[in-house]
Amino acid sequence: PAPSLPPYFMKGSIIQLADGELKRVEDLRTEDFIQSAEISGELKIDSSTVERIDGSPAPNSAIIQFAVGEHRVQVSVEVLVEYPFFVFGQGWSSCCPDRTTQLFELSCAKLSVGDVCISLTLKNLK
């Protein structure tokens, strides 16, 4: 069977923010993630800039290289092309927005080099 995305990216999925508020996945905003991370205490929002997007040998997959955080640490992840990332100030974006919309009904922009995505790290890992 083909790999698929987790169910919470389906349009209409109910997401609980750190303050307990419930929102639909398609209604989430940049501030929701930032405020939730502030409340959580354990999680920190990082800015991860898309540096490269390459094809992958795996079907329907891409390899995205990010520069993560203030130190711009290079991190590569292999994802399905329909996997949505949340871009600061823009919202959900994927390598293949048509496919994301087709599979999940989630409105998506095209993820491009230079986009700054929300990612998480743990606080105080040292």
Binding site: F9, I15, Q16, L28, S36, I45, F66, L120, T121, L125
Partner: peptide
Amino acid sequence: VPVFPWHSLVPFLAPTQSD
């Protein structure tokens, strides 16, 4: 109806803390 925590939707791109 399932409710999912907000942090499920955001990838952990933690720089490796292997030091």
